[in-house]
């Protein structure tokens, strides 16, 4: 009986969260003194209400989950599920691909963020200063994300202020588009603070050959490879040589020469998961 009451009280407390009015998890934390990680309702400037996950603990907290990039099929080449590049095939005539890095389209659910791609209105509505990134094994439930993550880090230099306050605005300055420039035209590389993992574990997540091309300890935006394909984010690393970023940067436009198109473009180039070559 005691357990039943506890569960009810727990649900009651969770449902009370729907009375909060805020545009970000930081506002909920600051205004309502909520310090528990979990799902909360947020409201956009236009009054649209949506639900997302708040990390209230990392580095003082108030982190709003706005997106997830999930690979449903590493063998798919810009096919269904490649929302962060293109679901319309590797196509020279669609240089932006699906365009989701710089539009107001939304998809997925917060609870399903490790099982499919996710993007909510916070992606373009929240004026933020810093970013945090978690790499969580596929299909893990929300209450285990933090513990299960293989890599967690955040920025702390308020770099987003310089780029309009969110990724929507940042990618207006640096379009994720095929043939927008060359390798030397990449966007900002921002130093990170590790919450789980370090520079060495970051390095080891990528292939033997990519390790000679990047420096760990950064998050980089809009990288461009030798073939002029654009990628959105190099997570944990800054490309410094070689320009073969398709092997270690995620998201992209709609065309990769010859056929490496995808949300995790060419992470499987050779010997997938064997720690050899480019893969």
């Amino acid at each position: 009986k005691k357990k039943l009451i506890t569960n009810f009280e727990h649900l009651e407390r969770l449902s009370n969260r729907s009375r909060y009015v805020a545009r970000s998890c930081k506002e909920i934390r600051d205004r309502y003194n909520e310090q528990e990680d979990g799902l909360y309702y947020l409201t956009t400037a236009n009054g649209m209400v949506y639900q997302t996950f708040c990390d209230m603990t990392t580095a003082g907290g108030g982190w709003t989950l706005v997106a997830s990039v999930h690979e449903n099929s590493i063998n798919g080449r810009c096919t269904v599920g490649d929302r962060w590049s293109s679901q319309q095939g590797n196509n020279l005539n669609l240089p932006d691909g699906d365009g989701n890095w710089s539009n107001r389209n939304t998809f997925g659910t917060a609870e399903g963020a490790t099982s499919d791609d996710f993007k909510n209105p916070g992606y373009y509505d929240i004026k933020a200063e810093d970013m945090s990134v978690w790499h969580v094994p596929n299909n893990f439930p929300l209450d285990h994300w933090n513990l299960a993550a293989i890599l967690r880090y955040h920025t702390n230099n308020r770099f987003l202020r310089l780029y309009g306050g969110n990724l929507f605005q940042l990618f207006k300055h640096y379009p994720v588009r095929y043939n927008i420039g060359s390798c030397s035209n990449r966007g900002p590389a921002v130093p990170i603070v590790y919450d789980h993992g370090d520079r060495e574990t970051t390095r080891m997540f990528y292939g033997l050959k990519p390790r000679k091309e990047f420096e760990p300890g950064f998050i980089t935006f809009r990288a461009i490879n030798n073939e002029r394909a654009a990628m959105a984010i190099c997570s944990g690393v800054k490309p410094i040589a070689g320009c073969n970023t398709e092997h270690y940067c995620i998201g992209g436009g709609g065309y990769f020469y010859p056929d490496q198109c995808g949300d995790f473009p060419s992470f499987d180039y050779d010997s997938l998961g064997m720690g050899q070559g480019w893969s």
């Binding site: 970000s24 998890c25 930081k26 990390d55 108030g62 982190w63 709003t64 989950l65 706005v66 997106a67 997830s68 990039v69 999930h70 690979e71 590493i74 963020a113 490790t114 099982s115 916070g122 929240i126 933020a128 200063e129 810093d130 970013m131 945090s132 990134v133 978690w134 790499h135 969580v136 094994p137 596929n138 994300w145 993550a149 293989i150 890599l151 955040h154 987003l160 969110n166 990724l167 080891m204 997540f205 990528y206 292939g207 990519p210 984010i233 997570s235 092997h247 270690y248 995620i250 995790f264 992470f267 499987d268 997938l272 998961g273 720690g275 893969s279």
Partner: peptide, 15 residues
């Protein structure tokens, strides 16, 4: 990249 990396979703947060 390692299988760990390709079989993990990348979650993006703002503050």
């Amino acid at each position: 990249a390692s299988k760990e990396m390709t079989e993990a979703a990348v979650l993006l947060f703002y503050r």
